[in-house]
Simulated assay, not measured.
Amino acid sequence: MKDFSKELNFKTSRSSGAGGQNVNKVETSVTVLWKVRESEFFNDDEKALIQNKLKNRINAEGFLFLTVSESRTQLMNKNKAIEKIIELVDKALIIPKKRRATKPSKGQMQKRLDTKKKLSEKKENRKFKY
C-alpha cells in the first residue's frame, strides 16, 4: 500500500442535497484528482494496470478523480477522499490468480451417477402398473 497522497490535487465545491443554509454558503464537497501517468510512486507496468482497471474513472486528460461529500466538513471529506482513492488504486493493483482447469474425480462422478440412478428408480416405482 503506497502512500501517494503528495501527488494528489484537490478541488472543493458546494455539496448538493439537503443540509439547510450551510449547503448554500460552504464548499464542503471535495474532488481529488491524480495524474496517473506522471506518478513517481509506481512503475510503468503498475500505471498501465491502474489505467486499464480504472479506465471508467480516468478522464481524457489522464486524471483519476473521485468526489466525496459525505461529511459536513471539508477536512473530513478530504481525508475520506484520500482513503478512498488509495483503496481504489490498491484494489486495481491486485492481479487475480489464474484458474486452473480441474475435472471431477472418478469417485465423485460415480457418486453422481448412483444418485441419478436411485432417483430414477424412485420415480419409476411411482408409476401406476396394470
Rank of each mutant, 00 (worst) to 15 (best):
Q51E: 14
E124T: 13
L88F: 00
F10H: 05
N59T: 01
F10T: 04
T28I: 05
F41G: 13
N43K: 07
L113M: 14
N79L: 12
M1C: 08
A60S: 10
M109Y: 14
L66Y: 13
I95D: 15
S71P: 08
F128T: 01
E70K: 11
S16D: 03
N77D: 15
M1K: 04
V89C: 09
S29F: 05
A92L: 04
K129Y: 10
K111A: 15
T31A: 10
K47M: 02
S120I: 14
L64H: 04
E87P: 05
G20M: 10
A18W: 04
K55Q: 14
S105W: 04
I50R: 03
D3H: 02
K47E: 04
K35M: 13
D45M: 07
T67E: 11
T31Q: 06
F4T: 01
F4K: 01
D3A: 05
L54G: 12
Q74S: 09
K97L: 09
T115A: 07
V36R: 00
Q110E: 15
T73Q: 03
S71W: 12
K47Y: 05
S29V: 05
E46L: 02
S29M: 11
L66F: 12
Q108S: 15
T12L: 06
A18Q: 06
R37Y: 09
R99T: 07
F65P: 01
F42V: 01
V89M: 10
F10W: 04
E121S: 07
Q74N: 12
D114V: 03
L33K: 03
A48G: 08
N77F: 08
V26D: 03
Y130H: 13
S69P: 07
E83L: 05
I50C: 00
V36I: 15
K111E: 11
D90E: 14
S15D: 07
K103R: 10
K80C: 09
L33V: 03
S69Y: 05
V30K: 01
E46Q: 06
E61L: 00
K129D: 15
K118Y: 09
F63W: 08
T31L: 05
V32E: 00
I82E: 12
K91R: 11
L49S: 04
S5F: 02
K55P: 01
K80Y: 11
K35E: 12
M76S: 07
K2G: 08
K91F: 11
R37V: 11
N24G: 14
N43M: 10
P104L: 01
Y130Q: 11
K127D: 02
K98W: 07
K122T: 12
Y130C: 08
A101M: 09
K123W: 07
Q110N: 10
Q74G: 14
K103N: 15
E38T: 14
A60P: 02
M109H: 13
G107L: 07
L54R: 10
N56R: 09
N9W: 15
G17P: 04
K11N: 12
L49E: 02
